[in-house]
Simulated scan of single mutants.
Amino acid sequence: MLRQVKPKNARTKRVMDKREPKVVEGAKIALFLRGNATSQLVVDALHDLYALKKPFAVNFQKKNPILPFEDSSSLEFFSEKNDAGLAVCATHNKKRPHNLAWIRFFDYHVLDMIELGIVDYKPISSFHTVPIVPGTKPMMLFQGPSFDSHPVFRHVKSLFLDFFRGEPIQKLDSAGLSYVIVVSAGEASDDETQALPKVNFRVYSTKLLKSNTNLPRVELEEMGPRLDFSIRRVQAAQADVLGEALKKPKTQEPKTKKNVDVDLVGNKVGRVHVDQQDLSNLQTRKMKGLKRSAAEEEEEEEESEVEDEDVVSDVE
Rank of each mutant, 00 (worst) to 15 (best):
P68M: 12
A101D: 08
D314E: 13
P168V: 14
Q283K: 13
P134G: 02
F163V: 13
S304R: 15
K250S: 04
R3N: 04
Q170Y: 11
V183A: 10
L159W: 11
V241N: 00
F106I: 04
L86P: 01
A245N: 02
Q276R: 06
V58I: 07
P134E: 05
E222A: 10
E76D: 06
S304Q: 05
L75V: 11
R232V: 10
P138D: 02
K28E: 06
M223K: 13
P134W: 11
S304L: 12
N281P: 01
N99C: 15
D17C: 14
A45P: 05
A175W: 06
K255Q: 03
R104C: 04
F201W: 14
V130L: 13
L41Y: 00
P7L: 13
L111A: 12
L161Y: 05
F56K: 15
S184V: 04
T213S: 13
H155P: 03
P7M: 11
T206W: 04
S189M: 10
Y204N: 07
L52S: 10
G117C: 14
H150N: 07
D191M: 09
K81D: 05
E192D: 03
S79A: 14
F153L: 08
S125C: 03
F147K: 02
A37W: 06
R34Y: 08
M140L: 15
S184K: 10
R226V: 12
T38P: 09
P55D: 04
R226S: 05
E305D: 08
A37Q: 05
E301I: 12
S189H: 06
V199S: 06
G166N: 10
E167P: 08
I29Q: 07
R3Y: 01
V241S: 07
I169H: 07
L215K: 14
A185P: 04
P151Y: 09
F229W: 09
E307H: 08
L2W: 09
K248I: 14
E187H: 05
D83S: 09
K248D: 00
V234N: 01
P97I: 11
D261H: 15
H273R: 07
I103M: 11
L196W: 08
L33Y: 11
V306D: 01
Q252L: 15
T284Q: 02
S39C: 07
N64E: 05
S184N: 03
S280C: 12
E187Q: 12
I103F: 12
N36S: 10
K257G: 01
K54H: 09
K22E: 02
F163P: 03
P138F: 00
P151W: 06
N281D: 03
K250N: 02
G85I: 11
L31A: 05
S149H: 10
K258Q: 04
L100S: 05
Y179N: 04
I118N: 07
L52C: 08
F153K: 07
V88C: 12
S280W: 12
L116E: 04
K122I: 14
E303M: 15
E307N: 10
Q277D: 02
R96M: 13
F153S: 02
D240W: 07
D148L: 15
I114G: 07
R285N: 00
K137Y: 07
M287R: 06
K22L: 09
